[in-house]
Structures are given as structure tokens and as C-alpha cells.
Amino acid sequence: MTQPSVKQVWEWLETIPDPEIPVITIVDLGIIRNVEFDGDTCVVSVTPTYSGCPATSMINMDIETCLRDHGLTKIELKQQISPAWTTDWMSDSARAALEKYGIAPPQPAGGPKRCPRCGGDHLEKLSQFGSTPCKAQWRCQDCLEPFEYFKCI
């Protein structure tokens, strides 16, 4: 096959959902740092969200599977630690998708702005940690529902 363009590879990567939060893609999440061709090898640089996040290896496998399905055979995945991932790299569309899905998007203030269910702003933190390393547990005192907050780092 003829070598696809870097732009084409990005478009393919944009179809890969995050394994834990399927409403956003791994590109939305901001963890794909670079795509380039080294000769005929497609090199994708990925940065982990949290250093021990178990989804990292699954994401790498999904990237490889996706690119192979599109006919690429020489693929190299690079782990890029620096600069450290920050939620600032998350796209606006991803933030909106998160909220619609019931996860409050990250805020620079360090806590959720409003309840993703009822929009209430009387909120309390239940725990610094949630079902994945990137989330914390909060509760809305207006609708009394617990919800997850995507931590701002």
C-alpha cells in the first residue's frame, strides 16, 4: 500500500474510544502527543494520563489494532513521559461529552462546577479517588445523586 499521510493517521486515531470512558476518543483526551513516519514505520507517541493507569496498555493495543486494520504493518509506539499529561489538553468537545455522560469535566478550581445530572452547585467531595485513577467521587446536595468528577491535573 502507499504510505498514508500523517493527517490520515490522526483521523484514524480519532476513531479510537477511551477504553474506560467510551464517549471520548484518545485524541480528545490529549494523550497522543505525536504521529510521524520514520522511513516506512509509523511512530505514535503516547503519554500516560496517570503513571499506573491500567488502561495504558489497552490503549496501546487499541492503537496498534486500529492502524493494522487500516493496512499499516510497521508501527512503533513510544511512551512519552515529558511534558506530563495535563487535563488542559482535553478538547472542549470532550469536556462537553463527559458532562453529558454524567462525569463532571475537570476545572482549574480543583472541583466540579456543577452537578452533571441536575446542574446544581451545592456539591460535596466524597473521596479523592474514584473508579479510575483520573476521577474523584462527589455528591450533589440538590439532587442527592453521587457523580464522578474528572480530576484536574
Binding site: Y50, P54, S127, P133, Q137
Partner: peptide, 10 residues
């Protein structure tokens, strides 16, 4: 959950 997450980060 918090302890497991801490262990995971470490």
C-alpha cells in the same frame, strides 16, 4: 478504592 488507587499510582 482510594488505597487501591494510591497503590496503582505508586
Amino acid at each position: 478504592i482510594a488505597l487501591a488507587n494510591t497503590a496503582l499510582d505508586l
